[in-house]
């Protein structure tokens, strides 16, 4: 595969285009939507950079928690089933730590400046 431009560089180029060329011509609600579009691209960029490692770490924690291997989606579904049925809950060793670590990684991708992230991660 090619090494450059990276996906991140392409996203940066589009963000730069929206911010410097598109947004200044927008009016009313479109100004807000242009900002949301930039935020969406920035989240995609972070997901490309950080998503695979976060998902691999989550899958490893899930495998330890559930006692068997599998891909993330499958293991995550099993955890949801166990929490729904009551087979596991927040007091089950490892459950809370897994949920906390996973959501910290997810919010770092979705909204790295969210106050709740800083509150949980001093």
């Amino acid at each position: 595969m090619i090494t450059a431009p990276t996906a991140g560089e392409l996203i940066d180029a589009v963000i730069g285009f929206i911010e410097t060329r598109v947004a200044p011509q927008m009016k009313d609600r479109d100004i807000f939507l242009a900002r949301v579009a930039v935020n969406a691209l920035a989240a995609v960029k972070r997901e490309i950079a950080e998503g695979p490692a976060a998902e691999a770490a989550a899958a490893a924690r899930l495998a330890a928690l559930l006692g068997y291997e599998g891909d993330f989606a499958e293991l995550n579904e099993k955890l949801c089933d166990a929490l729904r049925s009551g087979d596991m809950d927040l007091s089950t060793p490892g459950v809370f730590d897994h949920l906390k670590a996973s959501i910290i990684d997810q919010v770092k991708i979705d909204q790295p400046n969210y106050s709740g992230l800083k509150a949980l991660q001093p």
Binding site: A43, F96, I103, Y114, L117
Partner: peptide
Amino acid sequence: SVERAMIGRRTSETEIDLIALLERAQ
């Protein structure tokens, strides 16, 4: 609209707040 798509990514902010509240309650 991109706004409706992106608000789906705000779901995780409520999850991190839930974790903080559940941790406090334990």
